[in-house]
């Protein structure tokens, strides 16, 4: 029995190490400073675009969809790169997305009930 326990323990440890290695199969390293700066430049450019489109009257009908898309893009870039969700274990992403998706769903329903999007 003792041998069995030890064997199991060893197997569990091997399994654990394997999982860690498997996770390394994803982009292995957190990006370096240069990549971070590149992301920041993109973020800055999107912000400029947001403000620009806000002031262009001829694009008024596109304003809301574009703004939402830009915002989502900036949000994703920060989460994926600065917060490393692209590189870290998927469990963290799952946790965060659970909260985010739940919040989006229930609050959109609340606003629908109030008819906020109707007018």
């Amino acid at each position: 029995m003792a041998e069995r326990s030890e064997e199991l323990l060893e197997r569990a440890e091997e399994h654990h190490a394997e999982r860690v290695r498997a996770r390394r199969g994803r982009p292995a390293q957190h990006p370096g400073p240069r990549a971070y700066v590149r992301i920041a430049v993109i973020l800055g450019v999107i912000t400029l675009a947001e403000v620009w489109i806000y002031y262009v009257d001829s694009l008024r009908f596109l304003l809301v969809p574009f703004l939402l898309a830009f915002s989502a893009l900036k949000f994703s870039l920060v989460v994926l790169y600065f917060m490393h969700l692209r590189f870290d274990s998927r469990s963290f992403a799952a946790l965060f997305v659970a909260g985010l998706a739940l919040a989006l769903t229930v609050f959109v329903v609340v606003l629908l009930i109030f008819g906020t999007f109707a007018g």
């Binding site: 946790l95 965060f96 659970a98 909260g99 985010l100 739940l102 919040a103 989006l104 229930v106 609050f107």
Partner: peptide, 10 residues
């Protein structure tokens, strides 16, 4: 942070 999504969502 997942919990904070609901906080700011509200």
């Amino acid at each position: 942070l997942a919990s904070e999504c609901l906080f700011f969502g509200a």
